[in-house]
């Protein structure tokens, strides 16, 4: 029994240390952003701020506010659209056998792993030719399309759990492809929509490469790009930068805190095999 207790204690110790290790940077982030500039110095790294100061925040917020809004304008439509399309695609690919279905699916998965750098210039050109280069709508379009593979995958994995007998019976009853979706699949899709929303929200919000190459003027840029610009300035005001980082991270953090339970449950049940 003693051995087991020892074992147990070690396990918890390892887990606690690991959790702390993964959370330390966040602690540092929080603590630094609430400091005044003169407090952010060599020796007081660990310390909690002596005076609670919002100076870093207010400056960061002033600089980043338009970009924060840009990110919202980008992420919400893009998430909604890619989720809906992914649901439809996943539905068709999981329950309708037709010639080329598998090749199609393979093709889609392939798109998930293309290094974005590889298609960057053609993308820039296409966007320019339809007049959407450098704007948020252009970014939305890009993210919807490049989100298709992963959302399709997630929904497809989820829908394969639905027995084909169900769709067969509905077909026999005369239901068409869309009504089967509408009346059978859509109602049960809430958990997978939650997972897909959170995944897409987080990934599109955090995305950097498309954001930095496909938008030109600072006024149009999402917050991830604005943060790098903030960090690149000459005098390094760490409390401002850290505040900026928190503002950038806050929406995804909030989403994670509120919906995290469903999200992790969904991930673990195999919605994401990748």
């Amino acid at each position: 029994m003693n051995n087991n207790q020892q074992n147990s204690k070690t396990k918890y110790l390892i887990l606690i240390l690991s959790a702390v290790f993964f959370l330390i940077p966040m602690y540092v982030l929080l603590v630094t952003s609430f400091k005044d500039f003169d407090q952010v110095s060599l020796t007081t790294m660990w310390n909690l701020p002596t005076t609670f100061s919002l100076a870093g925040f207010t400056t960061a917020l002033k600089k980043l506010a338009p970009n924060l809004m840009n990110s919202f304008y980008l992420v919400i439509p893009a998430t909604l659209l890619s989720a809906i399309m992914g649901s439809l695609n996943g539905y068709v690919l999981s329950h309708w056998k037709f010639k080329g279905a598998d090749t199609l699916f393979a093709l889609m998965l392939f798109g998930m792993f293309i290094p974005y750098q590889s298609i960057l210039f053609p993308l820039v050109q296409f966007l320019q030719s339809i007049g959407l280069y450098g704007s948020i709508p252009g970014l939305i379009l890009v993210h919807v399309i490049y989100g298709l593979p992963i959302t399709t995958l997630m929904f497809r994995n989820y829908y394969t759990e639905v027995p084909t007998a169900l769709t067969e019976a509905a077909r026999v009853d005369g239901a068409g492809i869309f009504s089967i979706y509408r009346y059978i699949f859509l109602p049960i899709s809430i958990p997978s929509f939650v997972v897909v929303f959170i995944w897409q929200f987080t990934n599109i919000w955090n995305e950097f490469l498309f954001a930095v190459t496909l938008t030109s003027r600072p006024a149009n840029q999402p917050i991830t790009v604005a943060l790098t610009n903030l960090a690149g300035s000459q005098v390094v005001h760490w409390n401002i930068q850290m505040s900026g980082a928190i503002i950038t991270a806050l929406p995804t953090l909030i989403v994670y805190v509120i919906f995290g339970k469903y999200f992790i449950k969904g991930l673990l049940s195999g919605s994401v095999k990748g």
């Binding site: 887990l15 690991s18 959790a19 993964f22 959370l23 940077p25 966040m26 982030l29 987080t202 919000w205 955090n206 995305e207 950097f208 991830t224 943060l227 790098t228 980082a245 950038t248 991270a249 995804t252 953090l253 989403v255 994670y256 995290g260 992790i264």
Partner: peptide, 15 residues
């Protein structure tokens, strides 16, 4: 524990 260990994934790489 799971949430803490996974939490870095929700932060933007730039952050």
């Amino acid at each position: 524990f799971k949430a803490s260990i996974y939490s870095p994934m929700i932060l933007a790489p730039v952050v």
